[in-house]
Every structure is written in structure tokens, then in C-alpha cells.
Design a protein around this nucleic acid. Structure first.
Lengths: 233, 233
DNA sequence: ATAGAACTATGTTCTAAAACACAAATATAT
DNA sequence: ATATATTTGTGTTTTAGAACATAGTTCTAT
């Protein structure tokens, strides 16, 4: 069916890790079952308690994975950048989603039925190891995050988030501005604090000449100091 | 070599999940490479920053996985009961350990070289899925734990830990006493609070007739109320 | 272009939990 | 058995950060 949107995507270049590990037959199956879906800014990609069906691969845009906790307070659990996979954990655990995902900004996501992936990796040790490694890395990060979010003070947590955002999404052409446009509320939910505290602490960082802010654009002036603030908590 | 300690252990009954999935040849290899090691109470099993080498399976006893955070403050990340596997995450992530493990009480651990396990699961989809599922479940728990530890108040966190200990290690013959003998400090490190607060909050629970305490023995009197305290935070 | 909503900023008050201090009770070692 | 260390229990003080209040600012939609 020439002309169908999914045929226009070159999966071999957009799904680099997985594509490389597949046989020709598996690649055909993947081509026939992958869907590419576009999400607008702030649109929900999946919801807590839903049944997981697809492996998702973020082609472009930015995604947050979050959880609503006590009194509906939201906590951002992790953020996704291109090209990263997400949405597969709950399927493998045979559970409904315990998190939700939404688009920070408009983005393109490739959806591949998890049944297909499971079938592939049962006979493909490399692919199995690929998922085992991703899960293992994420679990290590989650363990670290428990300690950081519970033991560091507000300044340390915010500094850590800024560094984390920089390392995840990089800098703009000026080599200083963090390449993401986040509301203070999202910054707060990422760092486990109230919006007021995120705002106040950002101002403090500005006064201390560690960063500058221009609306939502954050420029890192003194990364060493920021890292030190993050480290000492 | 009859008489060697490792030959005395019947791996088919002590490693139920993995054993079931192996071929006869793999079972022979496993028998030849598995070691059984005994740890005394409070002995360290592995340390943060060490290189992971073995898959560990707890045959009996109780183990804590913990991390030292800001100012050396320790946080218990998860606890292991027989028969559970641990120690494999860091190997799969190709990282040094980010946690340490020690014996709550004297225990027996079976060590299997990770190289062997990796080799097995490359050709064994069921075994690969077994590890994928364990990691996926643990990652879901870690995500939930981030929210619980950061958003719940002291009472909610302690109530949650008590229920968690009960569900992990069960009750003694009286059907009420939690089957683990923990110092208040460990209870605090599990629940992200100071020892004083663990002691004080335990006393409060006693006054409210939710539990009774006799030294380190904790008896759950009103589990419904305890669950409610945990839920509302 | 303008109204309404959402976001940002800052000051003030309040509270949960940490920090500290000390005594009593237990455990451990010699 | 006795001394020493560790753990438990409680009261007091201090503080980080939440909650609340209010105003200015910037989006967004029609």
C-alpha cells in the first residue's frame, strides 16, 4: 500500500537498536505491525491503570513519565528523549500501567505490539539482553533516585534536576541554555517540591550567579557550582 | 567429588524457577559452578562500587539491600526473602553495584557466575523472560516507592513498612507477630525517617491500639487501621 | 484585540520532622 | 558477674519546606 504513512518511515534508521538485531523475516513483520502516531503538546500517551499493549519508541519530541501520588500530587518519574523506548515495563511485569505518559511538546511515537516483541525476544538472545540491560539501567537509576529525592534538600534536588535536564536534552546553540521549555510546576514535580519552592530556589540560583532565567529558558552559568550544590544535597 | 558441600544441596528443589527452565546439559554446568556460602548476622554480602560477578539466590535467612546517601545516611532499598534472586541487576547494566547487601540474620546464599547465566539466557527465551519479568516487577515497585517515600508522612511510611515486612516475611505461629527481628534503626532506614521518629511513631501506634510491641517483636492488632494509615499517608 | 485562564513571583504563617540532649534499659564482651 | 557499648525511650528546640495569600505577568482562544 504505497502512500500509507507508516510506509514513509524508514524503520531501519529510526529503530536502530532493535532493527539491527532482527532477521529479515522479523523485519517484515515489524514493518507490517508498527504504527507511527503523533501527539500534540500536553496530550496523554497512556494512562495509569490502562493495559499496556505497545512498545513505544520516541522518534522526536519530549515525553514525561509520571505518577500521581498522595492527594493527586504528581511526581515525574523519568523523562524520555529521542530515540528511547518506553511503555514496555508494565507489559513484561504483567501489570496495568502504574505510571502515565504525556507529551512535554508535540512528538512522534512509534508503536509496536508487545506480543510481537515478546515473540521476537524469546528466540533472540541479543534482543532479550537489550531489554534486560535497559531495565537494569533504569532500575539502578530508580534506586539512586529514591535516595536523592528523599535525602537531599530542595536546593540539591533542584540542582540535580537541572543537570539531569541538561544531560537528557542537551543545550541550545549558545552552549548554555537547557534545551527544554518547562513550566515551573513541571520542574517542581520532577524535583519533588512545591511550585513556589521551585520558583524561589531558581531565583536564589540566579542571585548566586549559578544560572540565569529568561521566562522558561534556563541558562547554566556555573555548572561546577551547580554540580556541587547537587552533590552536597 | 562426593562429600563436597555444594554436592549436598539439591539444586533442583532450591532453585525452582531457574532449574525448571534448563536443559540437562545446562543443569550439569550449573551444578559444577554454583557455590553455597553462609553469612553470619550483619555480615556484608556485597558492597557498593564492587564489580558484580554472581547471581545470588537466598536459600534461607533475610537480606537487606541498602544504599548510603547524603552524609552516609543509609536507606534500605529492598529486602530479600527465601527463595529470591538478587545481585544480578548491576551485572546486566554493566555497572558496579550501586547498592550494598547484608544479612539481617544468618543466612545461606547460592552464588552462580553471571557469565553462565547470561550464556544460558541468550539461548533460552523462557529464562530471559524470567529475568525480564523480575526486573520489570522490581522497577514498578521502585517507581511506587519513590512516590510513597517522598509524599507520605512519617505515620504513613512506617505503617507501610510494617505491612511490607508482614507481607515479605509473614507472621509467627500466633498469627499476629511479624516474623522479623529488626532494630528501630533498620525500621527507620526502611521508612526514610530518623530512629527517634520510628520509636516515637511506633509508641503512637501502640497507644492507638494498632500494634503492640515487646522489645523488637511487633504484633499487628488492627491491620485494617494500619493499612488505612498507610493509604492516606 | 481582548477576556479569561494559567503561570510566575514574593511575602507571611504554620507545621512536620530533624536535631539535639539525656536517661533508662538491653545486649555484649571479658 | 561486671563493665562497656549499644539500643530504646522521651522531652525540648530548631528548621526546612509546605500552605496560604495576593499580585503581576504571560499565554491562549475566540
Amino acid at each position: 500500500m504505497p502512500g500509507k504513512k507508516k510506509d514513509l518511515i524508514d524503520l531501519s534508521s529510526t529503530l536502530p537498536d532493535i532493527w539491527r538485531m532482527l532477521t529479515d523475516g522479523e523485519r517484515d513483520q515489524l514493518r507490517g505491525n508498527a504504527r507511527v502516531i503523533h501527539f500534540k503538546k500536553n496530550e496523554l500517551i497512556y494512562l495509569e491503570d490502562e493495559t499496556p499493549r505497545d512498545l513505544m519508541c520516541l522518534f522526536n519530541g519530549k515525553v514525561k513519565i509520571f505518577k500521581s501520588g498522595v492527594g493527586g500530587r504528581s511526581q515525574i518519574i523519568r523523562i524520555i528523549r529521542p530515540v528511547q523506548y518506553f511503555g514496555y515495563r508494565a507489559y513484561f511485569a504483567r501489570e496495568p500501567y502504574v505510571t502515565a505518559a504525556s507529551a512535554f511538546e508535540s512528538c512522534t511515537v512509534c508503536m509496536i505490539p508487545m506480543e510481537l516483541i515478546e515473540q521476537f525476544l524469546r528466540n533472540n538472545g541479543d534482543l532479550a539482553l537489550f531489554f534486560i540491560q535497559m531495565l537494569s539501567v533504569d532500575l539502578g537509576i530508580a534506586d539512586q533516585r529514591v535516595v536523592n529525592l528523599t535525602q537531599k534538600h530542595v536546593r540539591g534536588r533542584l540542582a540535580e534536576s537541572l543537570i539531569f535536564l541538561k544531560e537528557s536534552y542537551g543545550l541550545e546553540e549558545d552552549g548554555a541554555t537547557i534545551n527544554i521549555y518547562l513550566a515551573r510546576e513541571d520542574l517542581a514535580n520532577l524535583s519533588n517540591m512545591t511550585t513556589s519552592n521551585a520558583i524561589r530556589t531558581l531565583s536564589n540560583f540566579v542571585n548566586e550567579r549559578v544560572i540565569t532565567i529568561d521566562g522558561r529558558k534556563i541558562k547554566i552559568i556555573d555548572e561546577d557550582r551547580l554540580r556541587k550544590i547537587s552533590r552536597i544535597g
